[in-house]
Nucleic acid binder design. Structure first.
Lengths: 192, 192
DNA sequence: CGCGCGATTGAGTAATTTCAAATCTAGTGG
DNA sequence: CCACTAGATTTGAAATTACTCAATCGCGCG
């Protein structure tokens, strides 16, 4: 369907959404469409007020270093959230870019509105807190993997962990997520 | 002082602690002392029910890989929290070890008791949620740094970010946190 | 003094990157 | 249907970075 209903379905998985909460969320959540290549957040922009929930498509967040190389921080597909969470949560300028790698339909929410939801409906704060805890685990695992695994093993882990990404992300997106060059990834793939 | 009062001072920084909350916390929080080398959590143990708040001393969490090499995931000093947050939040067996690298005084809290505090005093859940968001930013920054910086730059970033760690952690602890060998760190240090 | 642990240094080796060229692929127009 | 093109991927060879293994150094402590 790719509409607001999908978002409420997602929410229903973790909490029960009252009619009042539903009304408030409907009024603050905006559905947006983007095309492959569109930039939702740009490194250096003054502040990061938005976070996005993916209804359809694929996005990624990435940083461009001083040598103009891109490094993928996160991918997002259906039912994932994405933003520059460094800028978003530390209330600073954008440290990351967010762009579409496939045409997308997303729900755009801003921090202040979400805060309002938390205040009026505390169960949403609990839901968010549990999400954060799960994400926290994922980030810790990524760090642990990066510390102890070889490039090849990180790749093998990636494709078992996120099997859907191989077909939608390009070679160099995945390489830059794994912290290697696209040439190295190509060589790893060729003798697996 | 290194007693419970320090913990309440820490909490007072982010919220106002009612007398009732204070009573509940006093009843569930246990002060524990550990010596350098003591293991608080051991990789593989059945579950991770505890998290620790540091009153004094230095601890670290780390993983031992299949070649018996240690990789430091996190350090903790006064006013930091530490545990195996992978096991703790995903309710699984311990993926990490936690040990003392200096004699420690910590407050031990368990998940179920903390949940009770959240339920009875929702402002603690908000406090925790904000902490998680800050930690989330730190982990994202660590990943970004790992992706885009050289070993030398990661080291330079580490000593500006955590200047107190250089004197309390050993060479190979820091090296294993940065994802390099102790020999490489030694060489980096010698021509800085 | 001598032991033990941690840090440093050196030399050879392995893994990965860099730069450049070649190949593949999907889409476009003749 | 085929040729062409632009973008993406692969391959090769040299250079770089970091690692391994081994030996040595330095220091605190019994």
């Amino acid at each position: 369907m790719n509409n607001m209903e999908d978002f409420f379905n997602y929410l229903s998985n973790g909490l029960s959404v009252s009619d009042e909460a539903r009304d408030l969320i409907s009024s603050i959540a905006k559905i947006k469409r983007f095309q492959k290549g569109d930039l939702l957040i740009e490194q250096g922009q003054e502040n990061v007020l938005q976070t996005y929930f993916v209804l359809n498509g694929v996005l990624r967040s990435f940083v461009i270093d001083k040598n103009d190389k891109e490094h993928t921080v996160q991918f997002a597909i259906k039912n994932w959230w994405i933003s520059d969470y460094i800028g978003y949560y530390s209330n600073s300028e954008a440290m990351l870019n967010v762009d579409c790698i496939k045409d997308c339909i997303v729900i755009k929410l801003n921090r202040a509105s979400i805060q309002e939801v938390f205040t009026r409906f505390p169960e949403f704060e609990t839901f968010h807190r549990k999400n954060l805890e799960r994400t926290f685990v994922r980030l810790n695992k990524r760090i642990v993997n990066h510390l102890q695994l070889s490039a090849r093993d990180r790749y093998l882990n990636f494709i078992t962990e996120y099997p859907e990404m191989e077909s939608v992300a390009m070679n160099y997106h995945i390489a830059s997520y794994l912290g290697i060059t696209q040439q190295s990834l190509s060589r790893i793939r060729s003798n697996t």
